[in-house]
Design a protein around this nucleic acid. Structure first.
Lengths: 300, 300
DNA sequence: CGTCATCGATACGCCTCAGGCATCGTTAAC
DNA sequence: GTTAACGATGCCTGAGGCGTATCGATGACG
């Protein structure tokens, strides 16, 4: 004979009321099956849990001990059910977010904060990945969602635009073009460029290069670095010029001046995920991302 | 529909093997009922726990969460069963021991240590009581067992002798009777006595008085104190003489000399308990007490 | 002191449901 | 294209849980 939860539920109710009739009523059964189930439980345990007379029912010492344990087990099961349901709704669990360093500057902190506030029981695991590793991490299930620039997406990955902003020029403080309120990109043809490496940030690299080509020149690349902040630092040191997302202008760095450019290209960032990913947290996160993208578009 | 332990057991086994056929074999059932029980569990929870294809079974995120909880619940139940059985055997639980100060000098520490070593999972609650309160505490169930001198026992209390020892005389160092190897009790007729108060230690008081009367005199009581150690202290100060249990001579107090007495009365101590007491720890304790008494008698 | 009411245990019949057998549908391997 | 593996489903049987009726013991009350 094995113990069943029914017996624990009956036992706890009886231990609480110490009256077979009332306990049975509380359990919405009649008294005889309660008597039998309690007897069966005692038989299985090999322990007398209640001292019964025809006038009074009380717990034995072992019964008191088992009562505490059984009540705890039932409470644990109840909370397990609730938390499992929450887990299935994606309100609890683990969401592994892969982000590329170049894409993390704007979107990541705000989006993660929004999601974390909405689902405090969800655990967020952030890890930096290089862009070309992101696809593989998502498809293999090592990450649930990525934050990146749009790129040649392999089959099975979905993309949702979350943020967009124009490129702008960043110049050393003493540069001749600082005088212009709007910089014509063609004016930068002979300037040494500081850009993102094509290997680790292909989208951004291609965007900058494409912007230059559109204006009739191939950018002369002097330095490459994959950290956007470093690009601005190097420009401030007078080592060259660059085209960077406008939000970088929030860096108030003496020696670096930001200027809008003529016919600016727009750089876009979004979240990317595997269509086959069944992590329920992902659904909730994408809801956040959608709302975040809508709010950002409205605020633009 | 309510969750049953069978479903948890099946679920955990399946989550461990991730194979319906093998899990069913491990559970000594066939595969169809396992499929149905798992489906019923998922239905009750409203949560898909396994991602099944016809080639592969794996846990969902919610399933992993529930697996940890369910395994913990089953383990908790298992340990609850074991500890409840131990509790019923009296190997675990609470034993409330009431002792009288005058009786505690010899028997209590050794007996408690023996019991505590034998049943380390049992909790021992010691409390001092005055002798006349002991009976009531035992009968009302506020204490499980007492250690005391035998006395007029009311109905419903049982007694088991555990220890016995003769009275001996304790004298101030300079006393004329110190020269005698054995003191004749009659010689103490004119000495001032230091005794136990009749109110709190009636048995001991009566024994000493009876011993004196047997030798033809009523003891002249100068001081009363309920602590045996204090009696010896006062004797050492030269305030009088006394008759005390022989084991008190282990007190090596300068100024107090112990001497055997002629035709000594034996003072007896034992354990006392309510026959109606169903605390299983009591049974184990009484076994210890019986063995302790036998060992003491053999060592005598 | 006899009667009655209360309360848990027991007897018996019904019916639900868990388990076994047979089979289906899908998928991957060869 | 065939086959084998595997989980799902349909159907049947039997164990067992529940309800009704009743018993036996024990206080309460007149």
């Amino acid at each position: 004979m094995t113990i069943e939860l029914r017996q624990l539920r009956y036992f706890v109710t009886l231990a609480d009321t110490l009256h077979f009739g009332r306990a049975a009523a509380q359990l919405h059964i009649t008294q005889p099956p309660l008597s039998r189930q309690i007897a069966a439980l005692e038989d299985t345990l090999g322990v007398v849990l209640f001292a019964r007379s025809s006038r009074q029912v009380e717990l034995t010492a072992a019964g008191r001990h088992f009562h505490a344990q059984a009540a705890r087990i039932l409470a644990t099961l109840d909370s397990a059910v609730r938390s499992t349901q929450a887990s299935a709704r994606g309100e609890r669990g683990v969401l592994r977010v892969g982000f590329t360093m170049s894409a993390a500057w704007n979107v990541l902190p705000a989006l993660i904060r929004r999601y974390g506030d909405a689902y405090p029981a969800a655990e967020i695991q952030l890890s930096e990945v290089v862009p070309r590793a992101l696809d593989e991490a998502l498809l293999s299930g090592r990450a649930d969602v990525g934050i990146a620039f749009p790129w040649q997406r392999p089959d099975g990955l979905e993309y949702l635009r979350v943020h967009a902003e124009p490129l702008c020029a960043v110049l050393p403080a003493g540069h001749r073009l600082v005088a212009c309120a709007v910089v014509a990109v063609g004016e930068l043809a002979d300037e040494p460029f500081i850009t993102f490496p094509a290997a680790t940030a292909p989208a951004l690299h291609a965007l900058v290069a494409g912007c230059c080509r559109e204006h009739g020149f191939e950018p002369r690349i002097r330095l490459e670095t994959h950290l956007q902040q470093t690009i601005v630092n190097l420009v401030a040191e007078g080592l060259g010029v660059s085209l960077v997302p406008r939000s970088m202008s929030r860096m108030q760095l003496p020696g670096a001046v930001f200027r809008p450019i003529s016919s600016p290209r727009v750089i876009e960032q979004g979240v990317i995920w595997a269509a086959s990913n069944a992590n329920p947290c992902l659904v909730r996160f994408l809801e956040c991302a959608r709302a975040f993208g809508a709010a950002a578009a409205a605020g633009d």
